[in-house]
Design a protein around this nucleic acid. Structure first.
Length: 600
DNA sequence: AAACTAATAT
DNA sequence: TATATTAGTT
């Protein structure tokens, strides 16, 4: 029974680990060592000082050996961590003996968390029950058991139940110190105690198994709230706290917001950088058809880089040209028309593309107009995801906030559709079912909307050079979608089908006027339209594309008009993207599509 | 002490 | 990658 060196660590808990799995023992020891090196845990944390492990014992009497060690040196350990499953003596037996003979805190652990076993462990006096693989966080907290036990002893010795908390803590600390435990700070005992209790409260279930904190998923709705708050506060004045307060989402923490803000800023600065680059090396393009002076006339293009996706999606960098006319976007109820032009030569039928998946991935328009709401991600197991109802900032719908519990296996479960305009290949089933396939040739798409002009004074000058002059927020609500057919191309069967418009709660009406070659969709409610950085142009070799969520079948289209009527600020989160693209200068814009996403 | 942010970890 | 956590600063 070789013991690991007992003097490896100057301070800390003395832990006896009893386990018959050498591999796991190694891991555990590593973690314990790490714990000990982190002099930083939280104040009060006790650094593990010694790891005794019991390597290469004949597994048959592991528990017995452990018990012997403990009997021999009963004052040399502070806590025992023992596996439940052991060949000779049941972990529970060991537990019993320890409890009977030396009253050390014992933590049980096992691979599975079978309730009955956990219960049994607790009944037999285990102070905690850990599931393998045990996490660092759990290990960092084991000192609490020692601490509590000490507390208890102190209480008994003193015989004072009404002892002041602080006093008790002091005593407890002293008791621990006497045993060589390193206590980092005892100045703020009260707070720490509270912290400890809180920690316990949200980590421990009734059965003693530990639970991880949910992970916030920044859904579109949540992000919208976020950006809305940011805009309301003003770029220069934003702080996580203010945003949090404004967002008013239960369960969301300042840290969550801070983290998101960090990412958001990163995203904005990337945009800015790109804009600067673009302005530097801008190649002028013709603006022969520039409108009246109060019009916005711009071109933007970006490179879509899906080529690096390694799964057989063979479109390289694609360039798309977009042109937008902003008719006096400073006034409310202004109409904005954003036509997207696609060269006619892109008439290659998509139907023979490998399959419809390609259409999805080749859909730059998806980046321009996305009707996606929170897609139902089937990968996510219910137990790992929590949907919090949070009050919509518009108040009339129930936006979802996904809280996602950490997974042990890191399968992909990102909600790409939320931000992304370029659907990922392995998600296309979710994002764009095959019935949403849109055959070319749509030669142009235009959006018209009523722009809501907002006070722009908040926008930090210089933060986004190109945003500055475009500060008025354009928020769109789609009330109707209109599809214009070219004269030349007529629907083969005269039938325009809109299979579905995701995100549009329902389509009230669909008018199709063949004489005008125009179809109009009227929807009952607004839809989020993501008009992004990606005011896009279709590439010359574009094999196929679709309006994400809008399905046009069996029809040759030369143009689609999307009319967006703005009755409210629906998508503050996307304002910036509008700004980015809708430049007053009319300069050519050339965007790299960042991560293929609006904000990601 | 509380909030912020950059850096780093998971 | 997205989000969480930490550490150092204000």
């Amino acid at each position: 029974m070789a013991l690991a060196d007992a003097t490896a660590f100057p301070y800390g808990l003395r832990v006896l680990v009893v386990d018959d799995d050498p591999t796991w023992l190694k891991i555990l020891e590593k973690m314990l060592r790490k714990c000990s090196y982190e002099g930083r845990i939280s104040a009060f944390d006790i650094v593990i000082r010694t790891v005794y492990n019991l390597p290469a014992v004949t597994t048959c009497d592991l528990a017995r050996v452990a018990l012997e060690i403990l009997r021999e040196r009963r004052n040399r350990f502070d806590i025992v961590i023992s596996d439940v499953n052991m060949p000779d003596m049941d972990g529970f037996k060991l537990l019993e003996h320890i409890g009977l003979e030396m009253d050390l805190p014992v933590i049980m652990m096992s691979i599975d968390g079978e309730t009955s076993r956990v219960m049994k462990g607790v009944q037999h006096g285990a102070c905690d029950y850990l599931l393998k693989p045990v996490r660092m966080k759990e290990l960092r907290n084991i000192w609490q058991h020692v601490y509590r036990k000490k507390m208890h002893e102190v209480k008994e010795i003193e015989g004072h139940d009404n002892f002041d908390d602080i006093q008790m803590l002091r005593n407890g600390c002293e008791a621990l110190e006497e045993r060589g435990l390193y206590i980092r700070s005892e100045s703020d005992t009260m707070r720490k105690r509270k912290d400890v209790d809180k920690d316990h409260a949200d980590q421990e279930l009734s059965d003693g198994t530990t639970v991880k904190k949910a992970r916030v998923v920044w859904s579109v709705d949540l992000h919208q709230k976020f950006v809305n708050a940011v805009n309301q506060i003003g770029f220069d004045k934003v702080g996580p706290k203010k945003i949090l307060d404004l967002m008013n989402v239960p369960g969301l923490t300042r840290e969550n917001v801070a983290s998101h803000l960090q990412k958001y800023r990163l995203y904005l600065s990337r945009l800015q950088k790109q804009n600067e680059e673009r302005i530097m090396g801008a190649t002028r393009q013709d603006f022969s058809h520039k409108g009246p002076s109060d019009n916005l006339n711009l071109r933007s293009s970006f490179n879509e880089q899906t080529g690096n996706v390694t799964n057989g999606y063979q479109h390289g960098s694609q360039k798309i040209q977009a042109q937008a006319n902003l008719l006096d976007c400073h006034l409310e109820d202004t109409k904005v028309v954003v036509p997207l032009q696609v060269p006619d030569k892109n008439r290659t039928p998509v139907s023979d593309a490998t399959d419809t998946q390609n259409v999805t991935s080749a859909s730059p328009l998806g980046g321009v107009l996305s009707f996606e709401r929170m897609p139902v991600n089937q990968d996510r197991k219910p137990s790992e995801t929590m949907i919090l109802d949070c009050q919509s900032w518009r108040g009339n719908e129930a936006p979802k906030q996904f809280m996602q519990y950490p997974k042990r296996n890191h399968e992909r479960c990102d909600l790409l559709g939320d931000y992304s305009c370029l659907p990922k290949p392995d998600l296309e089933q979710t994002i764009a079912p095959s019935h949403l396939y849109v055959p070319p040739p749509v030669s142009s798409v235009s959006c018209s909307m009523e722009g809501d002009t907002r006070d722009s004074s908040d926008v930090k000058p210089g933060l986004l050079g190109c945003m500055k002059p475009l500060s008025p927020a354009i928020n769109c609500t789609v009330d109707s979608v209109s599809v214009q057919l070219s004269d030349r191309v007529t629907s083969t069967d005269g039938d325009l089908k809109f299979s579905s418009v995701q995100g549009l709660p329902s389509i009230k009406d669909c008018y199709f006027d063949q004489t005008k070659n125009q179809a109009t969709l009227l929807t009952s409610e607004e839809a989020s339209i993501i008009c992004g950085t990606d005011l896009a142009c279709l590439p010359d070799d574009l094999p196929g594309y679709q309006l994400q969520g809008v399905s046009l079948e069996n029809i040759g289209l030369n143009s689609i008009d999307l009319f967006q009527y703005n009755d409210a600020m629906i998508l503050p989160g996307l304002q910036n993207n509008w700004y980015d693209d809708l430049e007053f200068s009319g300069e050519t814009t050339d965007y790299q599509l960042i991560d293929g996403c609006l904000f990601a």
